[in-house]
Design a protein around this nucleic acid. Structure first.
Lengths: 91, 91
DNA sequence: ATCGTTTATCGTAGATTAACGATTATGAAA
DNA sequence: TTTCATAATCGTTAATCTACGATAAACGAT
């Protein structure tokens, strides 16, 4: 009964089931790329907590993290986001 | 920083963060209305568990439950669903 | 080689979620 | 009124989530 599509929608929705992660996604949408510290500066959360949120967004495929030296540059995976939008539209 | 819109997206996404609830929503979409027992019959979950899932979908506003005698007829709140789609499209 | 910056991970505590069986409540039917 | 059908709630257990501080890892700069 439950198929891969249900699982996939649930997976992405779970990643977006916390307001901080929704905000992070929108923030990334606006600036293309940023590092963890940037988000720590705009949210009242510790560095470790923000890192965890980023990890969850990454595991859901919504964002990517490119390591550059000591920094990690995060950006949206537009393809995954668009695909999610299409799937939600199909609901 | 985090505003009502972030909270709202997170709330609905949370309701859809479990594959069983995604399936239930789609099922309701297809048949317009059904009772709890119908869903128990198509999912490998107990009656109490299905009832809890329905409760979460209802609390998120995605579905309504109209009591008719001893049964409760569940149906999608199309307005809320459409609103969610639009909001997701804006991401 | 050491120091400073940045990020990820570890360990932890408290809250929440998911699932179940059992129970309760309500109304319909006999 | 007793029974049946239906759904919600209670109580419980195991798992997961959220948040934090502390620590570790990696790199650039001095």
């Amino acid at each position: 009964m439950i198929n891969d599509r249900h699982e996939n929608i649930a997976k992405v929705c779970k990643a977006l089931s916390h307001p901080a992660r929704v905000l992070i996604l929108e923030y990334l949408k606006g600036i293309d790329t940023c590092i963890c510290g940037d988000i720590v500066n705009i949210l009242p959360l510790s560095q470790s907590t923000v890192s965890q949120h980023l990890k969850q967004l990454k595991e859901a495929g919504l964002i990517r993290g490119d390591i550059e030296g000591t920094k990690t540059c995060y950006c949206i995976d537009k393809h995954v986001l668009e695909n999610f939008k299409k799937t939600v539209n199909g609901l």
